[in-house]
């Protein structure tokens, strides 16, 4: 039972933490962010497994975490509000070549991020060539050219 509680507590804590940090936090992963994630993983592992390093403990824990994740996927599919709460909604950042600065500031996205996405996805050179730029739910920026 303790293992289930530990797993659930850590799952919910990490879910909450990454939701609070915002959707761009993982989307623009740098090398250092990657190292940071490894450290978080290591710290989490200690808390989850405790002093029990048996295979059974690891298998049970993986099953618990996957079970919680599966339950959330089901619930998000059933309740749209919960889905929007946990995953967020897409956000338009550029409207007909005009950067929406207020939205960009809140979403912590700058013009460079949008131009980079435009160059990578469509080879666009200028802001006015973008009809819409949308910050998607997974933190990626999608570009619709003019």
């Amino acid at each position: 039972m303790e293992l289930i509680l530990r797993g659930a507590a850590l799952y919910l804590f990490l879910l909450l933490l990454f939701r609070v940090l915002g959707k761009r936090s993982l989307a623009e992963t740098t090398t250092f962010d990657f190292v940071l994630l490894l450290i978080i993983g290591e710290a989490t592992q200690q808390a989850l497994l405790g002093n029990d390093f048996s295979t059974t403990n690891a298998l049970v824990l993986i099953t618990v975490l996957m079970g919680i994740d599966l339950a959330f996927v089901k619930l998000k599919g059933k309740y749209k509000k919960l889905d929007r709460l946990l995953e967020g909604t897409p956000l338009i950042l550029v409207d007909h070549g005009k950067p929406l600065k207020g939205r960009m500031k809140e979403a912590k996205v700058d013009t460079e991020d949008i131009l980079e996405a435009a160059r990578i996805s469509h080879g666009l050179e200028q802001m006015h060539q973008i009809k819409y730029a949308v910050l998607e739910r997974d933190g990626q920026i999608s570009i619709i050219p003019s």
Binding site: L85, G88, P90, V134
Partner: peptide
């Protein structure tokens, strides 16, 4: 925070975004 009319078929839910930013 700008409110705009757009032709995209997406659920932006700006009010919810605003609440989300506040919570963040």
């Amino acid at each position: 925070v700008e409110r705009i009319e757009h032709s995209l078929e997406l659920e932006e839910k700006l009010d919810q975004q605003l609440k989300g930013w506040m919570v963040q």
